[in-house]
Every structure is written in structure tokens, then in C-alpha cells.
Design a protein around this nucleic acid. Structure first.
Lengths: 266, 266
DNA sequence: CGTGTCTTTGATATGCTTCAAACCCAGTGG
DNA sequence: CCACTGGGTTTGAAGCATATCAAAGACACG
């Protein structure tokens, strides 16, 4: 099960001409123009959706110090593993990650999905160790944020402290939403809610909300939603037949958001 | 659906002689000897499992200031409601609460359960509004912690800041554990995991880990675990028949923790 | 061009829900 | 003291959504 070394540098996957998966709306600095171009918070296009959101110019420079170190993670490679000690938090600059837990007798279960601008590793603050594995769904890059330094800095910068609390709180909200979904919806509602949620998140990042590319296999989606891969596949087919979406492989287009919303119950 | 006024003072339910539900191990200051006895953090028996855990004596006095205001909530009454603005966090001093979300077309779904020493309202920090209702499962009492003052104080007290982050992080961990449960376990495993989790939490509070009283109806437990009340009831019967527990109404005794653990998969 | 991974689709099995009825116990009022 | 009521619980029978098993198809990659 061991994968390529984490430190492996892999060039971001070239876009296949046939599948223009993600359609950017705003122009935005590329995730990593070259290896060590050291794009820091003050010049990062994610600064308004990421940890430093709301910080003053001077404070941004302090954040720059903190986030000097970047780390590339190849598709399928591990950023941190269950049991690892907490040294840093990771702000996702580009790419995406799944968070997986061992579901007791060896089976992995996906419990989280992270997109750019999100901070990973928060659940480890409490016990000082990670409880889950973070695995890159595509070639990705993160800012390494030493946790000790971050809290120290946040003592000086009230806005940063607020942001930290907000982000943690936001994670709680999101998890609770997912619990609502897992505990209370049928399969079709879960998939519809999942797609709508992705749409919202991509939109916030400046991508077209109605067409995007899934980074997960049917199996991973199923695991995330508490379903089997076959059920997920059938649901994609059904939603497509009903004209709510088109789904070619991992490229999704939402054709009828209103009816999708209706499905999950307004 | 409107219930008794929140400010109603109700005496804690007298213990019925026949059902000694909770068996305290440590001697501990009663949750609320009389109305305004103003038991503050520095003299509260929960100080080591609650927000102020780890604070120095001087800092504890600062916390006392912050938590002067207590609030009694009668069984079935609402502490805060979805849509309410965030003014305060609430530290649970005695009793218990369920957190419920509207599952879209009116049905309520239980997504959280809080025991003494836990801090409620954290999910509202992000959007400055609560997204769920908090409803007392029994006559309860909370410390009202004005959020603005708390963050202000935490700027002065690094240990308090750490505690705040830890508590938020702990909530994330717990929610993720529940997602693992909801998405990956069958009904029997869910109930077994639920009982073991309660056992651990009561134990931490100084109560006997093997016998406790459920504060929720079968329906509420089912809602929490993503099952129907009938299924929950059947499962209690089955676990009892198999000798893993005894269950009389809401009084539970765990008879075979090893096999319960085995069920959930180690 | 072949190999492996992912996906789709079909047939069958099953665990949980749904519907229904009886029961238990506490509280209430006759 | 007793029936009466009502919320909560238990148990049974039937139905259904999703899982499981199975096999074929579609790409992606070397």
C-alpha cells in the first residue's frame, strides 16, 4: 500500500485538450508557476478565502514569514498519516485531498474532501496527533504552517485569532451538515447534496459553478456518502437520464440546479 | 411546539429511589445547590474537564468573572435556536442537551448530544448565527460565556487560547468519528459504538462507566444514529438477549464491554 | 495492442424501514 | 382504589432501498 515518496515533485497534470474540467472565471496566479517561486500570502490569489482573510497588509507580511515552506504532494501520496504528531497545519494552495479513516477492520472510509483555500490538520490540535490520513487526489501543493508559530502570531493579531476560530468553527458546521446528510437522506438526496455542495465550493473559489470535474472515483464518492460504488454509478445514470446533470466520467455539468435542490428538500 | 419559558427555574429532578441511574464515583459539588449560589470556575468540580482546564489559579479568577451568569433550562426547553445570533458560548454545568437540525421538510434530526463540561455553540462562530437548536434533555444549567469577552481574555492568556482551539478541534474529531459511524457501520455496530462512547464520556466525568441512564428516547437515539426507533428498540432487545447489556427503559448496564468493542470492530 | 483500473448495468439477497398492534408505566381524575 | 389516558416501548409481518455478486464495457497507459 506504500506509495511514492511524499517529497516527490510532480508537475501538475497537463490538461487534456478534450476535457477542460475546471473553468476558471477570475484570472488567478497559477498554483505553482515553477518550483520555488515562493508565492506567499500577500501575493496569493486565495488570500481572501484562506486563513489570512481579513488581515491588514502589515499582518499579511507576518503571515508570509510563516508560510514560506511549501510542499508538493503527488497524486496518491500521503500528506500526513493517522498517528503522526501535529507539527504543522496545511493550507491547500492547489489540488485536492481526501481524508480517510480506517473503518476498523482495514476498510478505508473517506470522511473529508478538501479544496484549495482550506486548512487541513485541524482535527489533530486536540490530541496533538492526526487521527486520519490525508491523501492527494491529484498533484497538489500545500503551505506548511508551523502550528506553534501560528498560535504565537495569533496572540499578536486579533484578526488572525478570529480567523483561526472561524475556520475551526466552519469545519464543525460542515461536518454537522454531512452528518445530517448521512443520517437523514436517501441515496439520491445524498448525491444531489454532494454535487450542490461541490458547486458552491468551486464557485466560491472563482470557478464556474455548473461544470466541474470530480477528483474522486465512484468508490471514493460512495465511501464519502455512505454508499457503494455501484449505487453511486446508478445514481449518476439516473440523474443524467432525468436531465438533471450530464456526467461523462468525472466531468459533471449541472443542468437543472433547481430540481437538484428540490430533491434534497429545498 | 412552544415550551415553558427558558428562564423558568425548575428544581433538578429528585432521584427516584428505585432507579439510581447515575452512580457518581468522585464526590463533587452539586450542579446547583440553590438558585444564585454563583459557583464559579475556580470552585467548580468540572474545572479539569471544561474550558478552564489547565489554567493557573490567577487565570481561573479571570474566568470566574466571565462565567458569572448562569442559566437554568427546563427539560424540553430551548437554550438557543437555529437562526439566533451568537452572543455567548455555553458551558454545560449539569444536565444534558440534544442538538437538532431541521432535516429540510420539517423532520428534526438529532446531530449532537452534550454532557456536563462540554461547550455548546461553537459551530456558530463561523457565521455568527446558530444553525441548530439546543434542547435540554433534562433540567439543566449552563454557564453563559460572552464570546467577545472570551476571545479578548484569550489574547491575554495563551493557555486559554490553546484550550479554546483544543475544544473546537475536539468537536471536529468527535463529529468525524460520528461520520465514520453513520457512513460505515450497520445498525448494531452503531448502537454498540454509541453505548461505548457514552460509557467513556461518563467515566471521564467521574461516573461509573458500566451503568448509566440514557437521557434520550428511542426515537431520539434513532435519529442520532440514523435509524428508526423500532430498530433501536429491537437492537436493545437483541443485545440484552445476547447478554451484552441489560436495558430496562432508559437504564443501561454494560455487561460485556469486550464483546461490545468486538462488535464495532476492535 | 494488451493490461489494469474504473465504470456501467443486471440479477439477487438482505437489513432496515414501514405499518400495525399490543404493552408498559406514570400521571390524572373519577 | 380503579379505570383512563398518553407517551414511550416492544414485537410482528410485509415491503423496499440499497448492498452484494457477477459480468461486460470503456478508457488510460505502457
Amino acid at each position: 500500500m506504500s506509495l511514492a515518496s511524499v517529497t516527490t515533485i510532480v508537475r501538475p497534470t497537463a490538461k487534456r485538450p478534450g476535457a477542460p474540467a475546471l473553468v476558471p472565471i477570475r484570472v488567478c496566479e497559477a498554483p505553482a508557476p515553477r518550483a520555488a517561486a515562493a508565492v506567499s500570502c500577500s501575493r496569493c490569489c486565495l488570500q481572501n478565502v484562506c486563513l489570512p482573510s481579513g488581515l491588514a497588509a502589515q499582518a499579511l507580511l507576518d503571515m508570509d514569514e510563516l508560510t514560506r515552506l511549501k510542499r508538493r504532494v503527488a497524486k496518491g501520496a500521503v500528506l500526513y498519516r493517522s498517528g503522526d504528531g501535529l507539527e504543522s497545519l496545511y493550507a491547500l494552495r492547489g489540488g485536492s485531498f481526501k481524508i480517510v479513516g480506517l473503518s476498523r477492520h482495514g476498510e478505508q472510509k473517506v470522511i473529508g474532501l478538501h479544496l484549495p483555500g482550506e486548512v487541513m490538520g485541524l482535527e489533530a490540535i486536540n490530541g496533538q496527533r492526526h487521527g486520519y490520513d490525508a491523501i492527494a487526489l491529484e498533484d497538489s501543493e500545500v503551505c506548511v504552517i508551523p502550528f506553534g508559530l501560528l498560535t504565537k502570531l495569533s496572540m499578536r493579531l486579533p484578526v488572525l485569532q478570529q480567523q483561526l476560530l472561524r475556520i475551526l468553527s466552519g469545519d464543525i458546521s460542515r461536518d454537522q451538515g454531512l452528518m445530517l446528510l448521512l443520517g437523514g437522506m436517501d441515496a439520491e438526496q445524498r448525491l444531489a447534496a454532494f454535487l450542490l455542495s461541490l458547486s458552491r465550493r468551486y464557485h466560491r473559489l472563482g470557478y464556474a459553478p455548473l461544470e466541474f470535474s470530480l477528483r474522486m472515483t465512484r468508490e471514493e464518492i460512495g465511501s464519502y456518502l455512505g454508499l457503494t460504488l455501484e449505487t453511486v454509478s446508478r445514481l449518476f445514470s439516473r440523474l443524467q437520464k432525468d436531465g438533471l446533470i450530464t456526467a461523462r466520467h468525472r466531468d459533471i455539468v449541472l443542468k437543472d440546479v433547481a430540481r437538484l435542490r428540490e430533491k434534497v428538500g429545498h
